[in-house]
């Protein structure tokens, strides 16, 4: 049989098909990414125990009224000057950092942990646990104490691990830790605008992230933001790299904790 030439396919309408697809995607998709500030609502606690009052120096109160005017501690900040919050928040965190005397009494104090201190605490708790468990009769009360001791051991082990990581990367023997009560307290009114509220959230986030970035750069040669981006992408993979990154991030977060209490508005 004679060889037949295969007819050429007319590709003239290919462009039309591609255009159609293109337009379909243009219509059904959006360009902007969903971005937000992640926050946690505290778990509800059923307790009637009166809470011990928190010392004033550990609170940084920011209030926004219905006219979007901000009060940060004793100063009034107009909406257009909101970026001043940044340096104020940093001041709140850093003014007493590394100081053991001549501290500013209006700002949170720092505690200084060391490997020896945490090790001795850990040993103390382990000894306590051993003693409790070796008792012949374990009643309900003892069981409670054993549980507590287990928690304490776990806590000190975690702290010791963090301290060792800090000592390894910074070469310092003491780790500055801000008072665990220190927090930013954000109050608003019932009719405060969402945009103003988010703007304050943004300033808080920015100030803390900048401090974390600086610290992470000094310790690990990488910003906290970069570490976080990496971690968020790879979170579900359980590789050693991801685990180390998580450890490093936890250390930075302990050094500069973002504790933000959002108070329900009353008026």
């Amino acid at each position: 049989m004679a060889k037949r030439e295969s007819p050429e396919i007319n590709a003239g309408s290919m462009a039309d098909i591609a255009f159609l697809l293109l337009i379909f995607f243009l219509v059904t998709t959006t360009m902007d990414k969903d971005t937000a500030y992640l926050r946690m609502i505290p778990k509800k606690v059923e307790t009637n125990k009166p809470q011990t009052p928190i010392q004033q120096k550990n609170i940084y109160k920011i209030a926004i009224n219905s006219k979007q005017v901000i009060q940060a501690r004793d100063s009034i900040i107009k909406p257009e000057d909101i970026t001043h919050l940044n340096s104020r928040i940093k001041h709140f965190y850093l003014v007493n950092r590394g100081k053991k005397e001549n501290r500013d009494i209006n700002y949170p104090y720092y505690g200084y942990g060391s490997i020896q201190l945490y090790k001795s605490n850990l040993q103390e708790q382990e000894a306590r646990l051993l003693k409790l468990e070796s008792q012949e009769v374990i009643d309900e009360r003892t069981q409670q104490m054993i549980d507590q001791a287990y928690d304490a051991v776990a806590k000190w082990e975690e702290k010791l691990e963090m301290m060792e990581l800090y000592a390894k990367f910074s070469g310092k023997r003491e780790m500055p830790e801000i008072d665990f009560e220190a927090h930013i307290r954000l109050e608003s009114f019932l009719d405060t605008d969402y945009s103003a509220y988010v703007a304050v959230q943004s300033e808080v986030e920015k100030a803390v992230t900048e401090m974390r970035d600086k610290e992470a750069m000094e310790l690990f040669g990488m910003t906290y933001t970069a570490m976080n981006n990496f971690y968020q992408q790879k979170k579900t993979e359980n590789t050693p790299e991801v685990r180390t990154m998580k450890k490093h991030m936890e250390l930075i977060e302990t050094l500069f904790p973002l504790k933000l209490i959002e108070v329900k508005p009353k008026r």
Partner: peptide
Amino acid sequence: DEKVPMGIIFTAREILQELNFNSIAYSAQ
């Protein structure tokens, strides 16, 4: 929307807290 009063969001927060949905996010560009 930028003009939404915070009161509404705090009402939602309270309901969510009661039901143990503890993670929230404030959307922003």
